[in-house]
Simulated assay, not measured.
Amino acid sequence: MKIFGEILRELRTKRNISQPELADALGINNRVSISNYENGKAEPKYEDLLKIAEYFNVTVDYLLGRENAEKYYFDKTKTVPEEEKKIENFLKETEALIREKSNMSEEELKHIKTFMEFIVRKKD
């Protein structure tokens, strides 16, 4: 299981963000904090942990090494704002449709997921 510092460094470097840039973006006054987090010398306060999760669009559980982010992670840095809005609207509408029919079986939900994966992969 990865530790928080490793996960933070991986997320930050994947996006080519420096430690000072990340500290500024998160509103963390002490820029050394990011380095200390990544090197396991310090742990973030609860509020900072939430800011980090929101910034990278992952769950706190993922940051703590407790779950696989791939099922939740959507890299917002790879989209333009208009595209992001389209995706967010689509996700909201899809969720509303699924919740409307709350008695869907596991098999029906699996079919929906499989179809969506097919469409996404077809685009690539």
Rank of each mutant, 00 (worst) to 15 (best):
G40K: 10
T114C: 08
D124M: 14
F4S: 06
V60K: 10
D75I: 02
P44I: 06
N30V: 08
K123F: 06
V32L: 10
I7C: 04
A96D: 12
I98Q: 09
N103H: 11
I28D: 04
L109Q: 12
A25S: 14
K110T: 13
S102L: 05
H111T: 04
P44N: 04
Y55G: 01
H111Q: 14
K123Q: 14
Q19C: 07
T13E: 15
E88I: 04
E6A: 12
P20Q: 12
L22K: 07
E108P: 01
E70P: 00
Y37Q: 10
M104C: 11
K92H: 00
E117S: 10
H111E: 15
S102K: 05
R15Y: 12
L97A: 06
S18P: 11
I34Q: 11
L63R: 04
E10T: 13
F115M: 13
A25C: 03
F4R: 05
D24H: 12
E93F: 06
R9L: 12
N103Q: 10
D61H: 01
E43R: 13
N16W: 04
A23N: 01
Q19I: 09
E88R: 08
I87K: 02
Y55K: 01
E95G: 00
S105C: 05
K86A: 06
K71R: 07
K86R: 03
R12Y: 13
D124Q: 15
D124N: 12
K101R: 15
A23R: 07
R99M: 04
R99G: 05
E93H: 02
L64V: 04
R66D: 03
K86S: 04
E95C: 03
F90P: 00
A69K: 14
T94V: 07
F4W: 06
Y62P: 03
E54S: 09
E83N: 04
E47M: 03
Y72L: 09
S105K: 12
R121K: 15
K85P: 02
E100I: 02
I119K: 14
N29Y: 00
I3G: 10
